[in-house]
Amino acid sequence: MKIGSEWWTSPTESENGRLIIVTGRGGIDEVRNSGKYNIRVEVTWKYPGDATGMPDYPTSKVMEAVQDAMTKAFDKDPVAVLTGIYTGDDERNWIFYTRSIHIFEKKINEALADFDLLPINIYTENDPDWQEYDEMREASELEG
């Protein structure tokens, strides 16, 4: 199954008017249309943001390393696909679509094993129609 590596970035606003940088993945129609990736997983890292709600440099560097580790793990074994990243308003959210919560949990634990305790929360929800992905695309088209 072909998983695209095209990414786009667009600014948007949180409900309280703060800047959010949205980074979305394109080229994933084959994954979406397969009907196998029906569970949305949101990995959230809350941080003390600066005046604009963005992370400081040291935090952003650790976030980048965490993202690289997750991307590497799921590119090697695509049980989940990273589809979007939201940064701003004092948090970063990585959005995945997965086939199995249990396998996702195992793979993310392996991917992040080299890091000290991370301030992340994980939320899952059935989303077979990829509603969140569509909303992210619509929001970015309105901005762009």
Rank of each mutant, 00 (worst) to 15 (best):
M63C: 09
W7P: 04
T98L: 06
T87G: 03
G35A: 06
N38T: 11
F74W: 14
A51P: 05
A65R: 15
L117I: 09
I95E: 01
R40Q: 12
W7Q: 01
K36N: 13
M70F: 14
D114L: 08
N38P: 04
D77F: 04
V81A: 00
L117Y: 15
W8I: 08
K46M: 11
G35T: 02
T12E: 13
T23H: 03
E138A: 14
E105V: 04
T9R: 13
N16T: 11
T23Q: 12
E91P: 04
W8D: 09
Y57N: 09
E141N: 11
S34T: 06
N109F: 04
E105S: 06
A139K: 02
I3N: 01
P55C: 10
E30L: 11
G26Q: 04
M136T: 07
G53T: 06
S14E: 08
T124M: 05
N38H: 07
E105T: 07
N121K: 14
I39D: 02
D134H: 15
Y37I: 03
D129Q: 12
Y37W: 10
G26V: 01
G26I: 02
I3L: 09
D68W: 14
S10Q: 10
D75H: 11
D127H: 01
M63P: 10
N16D: 15
S14T: 08
I103H: 06
I39T: 14
A80V: 00
I103N: 02
S34G: 08
I85T: 05
V79G: 02
I85E: 03
L19D: 11
G144I: 07
D127N: 05
Y123W: 13
V22N: 00
L112H: 02
Q131V: 10
H102C: 01
W45H: 07
K61P: 06
W7Y: 15
G27K: 00
I85V: 14
L117M: 13
S5E: 15
T9S: 15
T44D: 07
I28V: 13
I21N: 04
S5G: 10
L118A: 12
L118N: 13
K72T: 12
L112I: 01
D50Y: 14
G4Y: 05
Y123T: 09
Y123C: 03
I39N: 03
L118E: 12
L82S: 01
M136V: 11
P128K: 01
D90C: 12
P48G: 10
E64W: 15
D77A: 01
G27P: 04
R40V: 06
N33R: 05
I3A: 03
Y123G: 04
G17H: 05
S14I: 04
D116Q: 12
P58T: 09
T59F: 14
I21Q: 05
A139S: 13
P78E: 03
M54Y: 06
K61S: 10
T87E: 12
Y133D: 09
D75Q: 15
E13D: 12
E141D: 13
W94P: 03
I108P: 00
D68N: 13
Y47C: 03
W8N: 10
D116F: 12
W7S: 03
E13S: 12
V79R: 00
R99F: 06
S34N: 08
A73K: 02
E13N: 11
I120N: 02
L117F: 13
I21C: 05
V43M: 08
M1P: 09
F96S: 00
A69R: 01
Y57W: 14
E6Q: 12
N93D: 13
S60D: 14
E132N: 08
N126P: 06
E30V: 09
R137E: 11
V62G: 07
